[in-house]
Design a protein around this nucleic acid. Structure first.
Length: 1096
RNA sequence: GAGCGAUUAGCUCAGUUGGCUAGAGCGCCUGAUUGACUUUCAGGAGGUCACAGGUUCGAAUCCUGUAUCGCUCACCA
């Protein structure tokens, strides 16, 4: 073993070994209790940042701990197609500015897919470098086949339940992204813009958006306020709210175009409600427009002039008001979707909004309509968090999810999506809540958001995403996508006995083969088959032809696929057979040994297949090799074990194997599909169950891993950053309950944002960002993990800097060297090699005090660590391990082992430490484990539980530690060279101290340590007290210094005694405090008094 | 404007249902170092637990108020 641990030499190999071993795959047939964590899928085109790193570290710790605890753990990985973000990146990547620059939508999608596929490995490999124990065999993607099916399915269900509607509503329109974006995607920026007071007839109204004051509008006043009409010096009449008129200072400040020195005459005073109904025509910057007065309490009498007009199509408040008062004719579009003014804006029509604002302001001034301008006004403007451009509220046809609409749920009865989301965390009518959020304070945040939740827009005007599964006919009637089943028929051998030789079933020239084909016809008769599809290999084709003839349907051939040699593949899994067949095929066709090429051909074939319209189901006749590849395609690499098992236990008739539901366009002529796509969250909200096979409720994964015993939730823990509590977590809860009748997880663990070591947000502009991959390369993944996990609590920022990582790198090295030391102790003196054996539980015979102590401490610490991990207190668990390893095992036990070696205990404790530490530092512990104990992975080990325990040993060894420390302190104080061996002694006849003489002498570097009740102190000495015992250390004599030292000690003791006495003399303390505390206090007092007496 | 959180050593933070002399890591100071580990070892200094009240035998911990910082949300014709 090297002197220092080098992570670069081992991490990659270790991870590969884990992957190759197949142990990372969760077994859905296992009898162990399940534990499931869905990995929040990172953006497929993204780079790993520290937030991801923290997420991976925390979840990996949970995963490894639970697995070592004996759970069947599934931590399911995947990536997110991240609709808007990815689309923008793709456009930029191709040096373009808009998706419209692609010849077709399909061309764009092809490029985007290619880009996403190409970037995919990058983020996946980065995740692996963190050491994440993920089940890659189940890797999913929010935009793959299965997830698309799930999206279409839930869309259809929601639509049928009336919970999805299409309609014209006010939405946030990003002019940059050319799409609607949700409220949650807005960022606000403080902007300083002039606030205009504009004359509207006699009324004065205020606005920051003069460009929108170009159309007919109601003019709104407050019903209960008085309004003054007055005449100014130029003979014009104005109406303002009385409050403003009475406050002359404010009046002239507000309407700064008025002449301060002129005299004003009040023409009339009217209550707002009395003004209602007045109609008038007034000049605007865009010409004359019609107005009429209405009253509403929306007016804030303290603000502005007490009157306003509205832009119902371009402001959320105005929209609400217009809806409420049914002012339908005022939904006037003034801004188009490109962000330019429409024709209604007259002179500024076609101008970009910002320009139009300035120009309209100038026009108002020229026309004398501008009566006030506050140039110090600042307000917050909503910006698109993706494109950074200004967001305009717009009315547009969009799809909405109706969270407050009542519907009937299978389990919850009459309810709304909102009520279900509330119940998740509040509980149903007094029941305990099903979903626990850690830390708890985020419950409040959750409710504040949920309680205010409104119908949200789910459609986006981008291409990269799940296209809305809705078609329109010529009359604009809505048609939903149709669900259809593809039935796979595997033929050619007897099902469930793959070791048998081909029985001629696939050969239609044989009697058996023909009988088999006829069997399948019988089976398929009830299935309403529309089309039969087959590969082109001769036997498939012929069999398919027979079946098609029997059913009276047509046959479609897809790509030619080769078969395999049965001998060659005996005993292989279906997936392996598929691979062999694929490789053979590729070789024969000069495509290299590339399974992916094969899969891709099949994929294209399936795409073609979906285009085939049929009124009935599609039947796919396939031999084992094609079928196995289809399995890979469909399940994203799911191995065949499930399938094999399913086949064996299947009650399905001979030959009928599996069904694959797809969605396709409804069979109606002249349809066009909705152009829009669904927002990313719509697919990511299905993540915990769409990755497990939903909507197939019989899917083995769903049965096993979405079936947590706690209150019947789906998965166990959803761990993510608190910033996406609303974006994502709440929506998973909503869809989970809706679609699966379960809340998707019982615990939500929220981590905070990763910041620099001073708690400042990391940002490119500040240059304080840290690249996790760089840190992994420099210090190792284990160190990065520890730094992210220790010293931060849920929901709070995670401060991290190079120093912190370095500190934990030192710890990792400490662990390495402890192992190296134990290895050296284990060496066979003859061969120089050590035997690699898994240590058994250490025996409890012939234990030294140190042995008994470390074993007892190990028991205590193991329990504490497990308790912490159980309670998701990862930081506390990490801290415990750190200190146990460094300050107890290394600092004391390894030193003791040099004096009194006990190899059995030494190896046992180290092995247990490696297990305890493994979830936090998987790489170093695995490496050490394999060096010293077992070539099999540490992940197969069981997490430590308490064993040998002796309270006395702990107490007695602590005394030894105190004695050693006290002597060391005196040595340091007296400036004694650490190399010099000196004498020391203790006035005691306790057996455990006497037994530790050699140990104490070694640890304190003494020539001798004398122990005896009647010990006589040497002349030249320093004295100190430990646990009531007097210790002498032989030192060069200095009477004054020694006396001063003793006085200092005495002073401290006297203070202590006084304090303790005071407390005990207080009768309310002795009466009310718990008895054990009082007794303890008495004991402390006794000991302090004894020590004081000894020193005097 | 509202809500939430924080305030403990120079820095970053622990501190479980109130309980003995408030802890850790880093940094700092003194010293050591050829045998597991300089990515080390020994020793040390450093805190009125933001402030002011209250409850209690007892408060960093519970309550009230104040201040400062941070985050989130909202309003703005």
């Amino acid at each position: 073993m090297d002197k220092a641990y080098n992570h670069l030499n081992s991490e990659a190999d270790i991870y590969k070994a884990w992957e190759d071993s197949g142990a990372m795959r969760a077994d859905e047939t296992s009898d162990k209790p399940p534990f499931t964590i869905p990995l929040p899928p990172p953006n497929v085109t993204g780079e790993l940042h520290l937030g991801h790193a923290a997420m991976l570290a925390i979840q990996d710790i949970m995963t490894r701990y639970k697995k070592m605890q004996g759970h069947e753990v599934l931590w399911l990985p995947g990536t997110d197609h991240a609709a808007i973000a990815t689309e923008n990146v793709v456009i930029k990547h191709h040096g373009k500015t808009s998706r419209e620059q692609w010849p077709t939508r399909e061309a764009f999608m092809g490029d985007a897919k290619a880009f996403a596929d190409q970037k995919h490995n990058n983020i996946v490999n980065q995740m692996k470098r963190m050491g994440a124990w993920l089940d890659w065999s189940r890797e999913a993607y929010t935009f793959d086949e299965s997830r698309n099916f799930a999206v279409n399915k839930i869309f259809k269900d929601l639509y049928k339940d009336g919970l999805i509607e299409r309609g014209y509503r006010l939405i946030n329109w990003s002019t940059g992204a050319q799409s609607v974006i949700s409220d949650d995607e807005l960022e606000y920026d403080e902007a300083k813009e002039p606030f205009y007071y504009i004359k509207c007839g006699k009324f004065i109204m205020g606005t920051v958006r003069p460009e929108t004051k170009c159309a007919n509008s109601p003019l709104i006043v407050h019903p209960d306020e008085d309004y003054i009409e007055f005449e100014n010096s130029t003979g014009e009449n104005y109406i303002v709210i009385k409050r403003l008129y009475d406050d002359k200072e404010k009046l002239f400040k507000t309407l700064n175009f008025l002449d301060r020195d002129a005299k004003y005459e009040i023409i009339s005073t009217n209550k707002g409600s009395d003004l209602v109904g007045q109609k008038f025509t007034a000049e605007t910057y865009a010409g004359e427009r019609d107005f009429f007065v209405i009253a509403d309490e929306i007016i804030d009498p303290e603000k502005g002039s007490g009157a306003m007009t509205i832009s119902a199509s371009h402001s959320a408040d105005d929209y609400d008001l217009a809806k409420r008062l049914k002012l339908d004719e005022f939904f006037i579009q003034k801004i188009d979707f490109a962000g330019n003014m429409t024709d209604v804006a007259g002179p500024v029509a076609g101008m970009f909004v910002k320009k139009a604002r300035n120009v309209s302001g100038k026009l108002l001034e020229e026309k004398g309509l501008l009566v006030g301008k506050d140039t110090n006004y600042s307000h917050r403007v909503p910006l698109c968090y993706r494109s950074g451009c200004v967001v305009e509220p717009m009315i547009s046809p969009q799809w909405f999810i109706m969270v407050e609409k009542e519907y009937t749920h299978e389990v919850d009865g009459k309810t709304t999506l909102k009520k279900q989301m509330q119940a998740a965390v509040r509980g149903f009518k007094g029941e305990d809540p099903s979903v626990q959020i850690i830390p708890e304070r985020f419950n409040k945040e959750y409710f504040r958001w949920i309680d205010n939740l409104q119908d949200s827009c789910i459609s986006r005007q981008i291409w990269w995403g799940h296209r809305i599964p809705v078609w329109y006919d010529e009359k604009n009637q809505i048609h939903l996508a149709e669900e259809q089943e593809i039935i796979f028929v595997r033929h050619g051998e007897s099902v469930g006995n793959r070791d048998e030789k081909v029985q001629g079933l696939d050969d239609p020239l044989t009697e058996k083969g023909q009988a088999h084909a006829r069997d399948m016809i019988e089976v398929l008769k009830s299935e309403k088959v529309g089309v039969i599809v087959t590969g082109k290999s001769a036997r498939n084709t012929e069999t398919a032809d027979i079946i098609a003839a029997g059913l009276g349907v047509k046959v479609v051939h897809i790509e030619e696929l080769s078969s395999y040699d049965t001998k060659e593949v005996a005993g292989m899994t279906i997936e392996e057979i598929g691979r062999v067949a694929a490789i053979k095929y590729c070789k024969e066709h000069g495509k290299g040994e590339n399974f992916e090429v094969f899969v891709e051909r099949l994929r294209i074939g399936l795409e073609k297949l979906k285009e085939v319209r049929s009124n009935g189901k599609i039947v796919f006749v396939a031999n084992r090799s094609i079928y196995s590849v289809l399995q890979v395609l469909r399940d994203g690499g799911e191995t065949s074990e499930i399938f094999e098992k399913r086949s064996k236990n299947s009650k399905l008739p001979h030959g009928l194997i599996d069904r694959w539901p797809i969605f396709q366009a409804p069979d109606v002529p002249n349809l066009r599909q909705d152009e829009d796509t669904l927002d990313t969250w719509f697919s990511s909200a299905l993540w915990p169950f769409s990755t497990l096979g939903w909507p197939n409720n019989d899917a083995p994964d769903l049965q096993k891993f979405y079936n947590n015993s706690v209150n019947g939730q789906g998965t166990d823990v959803l761990e993510t950053g608190w910033d996406i509590l609303f974006f994502w977590v709440a929506r998973m809860i909503m869809f989970g309950r809706y679609a699966t009748n379960k809340f998707p997880f019982h615990t939500v663990y929220l981590h905070g944002m990763v910041t620099d070591e001073h708690g400042k947000k990391m940002s490119k502009s500040k240059g304080n960002g840290i690249d996790p991959i760089g840190m992994i390369e420099k210090f190792g993944a284990d160190a990065v993990r520890l730094a992210l996990v220790i010293g931060s609590s849920p929901g709070n920022p995670i401060p991290i800097g190079e120093n912190k990582i370095k500190g934990y790198r030192n710890f990792v090295n400490k662990l390495w060297n402890a192992t190296r030391f134990v290895g050296m102790q284990s060496e066979n003196t003859e061969t120089g090699l050590y035997e690699r054996t898994v240590p058994l539980r250490a025996v409890s015979e012939n234990l030294s005090l140190a042995d008994a102590w470390i074993l007892s401490r190990l028991s205590v610490v193991s329990t504490e660590i497990a308790n912490h991990l159980e309670a998701y207190e990862i930081s506390a668990a990490g801290d415990k391990i750190y200190h146990f390893v460094w300050n107890e095992f290394c600092a004391w036990y390894l030193e003791a082992a040099k004096v009194e070696p006990n190899l059995e205990v030494l190896r046992f404790v180290l092995a247990e430490i490696l297990k305890l530490t493994h979830p936090l530092c998987p790489f170093i512990t695995e490496q050490c484990w394999q060096e010293l104990f077992d070539e099999n992975s540490l992940m197969a080990a069981t997490y430590p539980v308490a064993g040998f325990m002796s309270e006395t040993a702990i107490e007695n060894f602590e005394t030894v530690q105190n004695i050693v420390s006290a002597i060391r302190t005196i040595r340091a104080e007296k400036g004694i060279n650490p190399k010099d061996k000196i004498m020391a002694g203790i006035k005691s006849d306790e057996a455990h101290i006497a037994a530790s003489r050699a140990l104490i002498a070694a640890l304190a570097n003494l020539s001798e340590f004398e122990v005896g009740a009647n010990l006589v102190a040497p002349e030249q000495r320093a004295t100190t007290m430990v646990d009531g015992l007097e210790i002498f250390v032989e030192v060069p004599f200095d009477e004054d210094a020694e006396r001063a030292r003793i006085e200092k000690l005495k002073l401290e003791l006297e203070k202590k005694v006084a304090g303790l006495k005071g407390r005990l003399s207080n009768s309310s303390y002795t009466d009310k405090a718990p008895a054990h505390l009082v007794a303890e206090t008495r004991k402390h007092l006794e000991q302090a008094e004894l020590e004081l007496k000894t020193l005097s």
